[in-house]
């Protein structure tokens, strides 16, 4: 469904991605793990069109993404749940979800999607008329995920959903991801610092380090590989 082929990208003077190739098949749950500064968020921004790659190819659903302007990519079926939540703070919870359903597909499936989102994360229903800026970090993360689901995407991209959350809340979020996966069978691309949780939920994983893919494999292979630990801790 998504092919990332030898992608290079840079932020002003800093090279961030160097020849990254990643393949996501339809229905697959792929995790990209790696320490901070490895280029995970930049990779997502490149897929969404906010960062323009200096070389390489991006193909989504048979279409070359380079020729698609950033705002049109959501309409192709890519939902990006960004790092640090980035909900719309002055909009209410419901309005945030409506913005998620800005795509035609999202509007068509609005009723059933809303039901699913509010059932999965009932706290959003309780707070539906509250401005999103007043929610706690964990609630904002749920809203961000709900907003992504509301677009009825083909591919859901999650950038560090556990970042800055208390461990119990992070666990809760991961449980919701497993639920979502079970209920919808969506194709999911997850970026995470917390390797263990990420690999546990995913089918296949990539380890990104300073802009390169240094390891890839199935969940079991990666967990058994001590180089993953080294990539993080250095020894």
């Amino acid at each position: 469904m998504l092919t990332i082929d030898r992608l290079d990208a840079a932020y002003s003077v800093l090279p961030v991605l160097k020849g990254v190739s990643i393949e996501v098949a339809a229905g697959q749950f792929v995790a990209i793990v790696g320490p901070n500064g490895a280029g995970k968020t930049t990779l997502f921004k490149t897929i969404s069109g906010i960062v323009i790659p200096s070389a390489g190819r991006l193909v989504f659903d048979g279409q070359d993404l380079m020729s698609v302007p950033p705002s049109a990519r959501a309409h192709l079926g890519i939902a990006h749940v960004p790092e640090g939540r980035q909900v719309f703070p002055s909009l209410t919870v419901m309005e945030n979800l409506e913005m998620g359903a800005y795509t035609a597909a999202g509007r068509r499936a609005w009723r059933s999607n809303l039901d699913m989102i509010l059932t999965l994360m009932p706290v959003l229903a309780e707070r539906r008329h509250q401005p999103a800026g007043t929610l706690s970090g964990g609630q904002q993360q749920m809203l961000a995920i709900g907003r992504g689901l509301a677009s009825a995407p083909k591919l859901l991209m999650l950038d560090e959903p556990s970042m800055g959350l208390a461990p119990a809340m992070a666990d809760f979020i991961f449980e919701r991801l497993i639920d979502i996966r079970r209920q919808t069978n969506l194709t999911i691309l997850l970026v995470e610092q917390r390797v263990a949780e990420a690999l546990e939920t995913a089918d296949y994983g990539y380890v990104l380090e300073t802009g390169r893919v240094v390891l890839e494999g199935t969940n079991a292979t990666l967990r058994a590989d001590d180089r993953v630990r080294q990539a993080y801790l250095g020894m």
């Binding site: 906010i50 049109a72 960004p82 980035q86 719309f88 909009l91 309005e95 907003r147």
Partner: peptide
């Protein structure tokens, strides 16, 4: 209105609005 909400979303966070499929420009 949908337009009004899209404008407010673009004001709040233009990058996230782009992720929603809103043409911020």
């Amino acid at each position: 209105s949908r337009l009004g909400k899209a404008l407010r979303a673009s004001a709040d966070n233009p990058v996230a609005a782009t992720y929603m499929g809103i043409d911020v420009d």
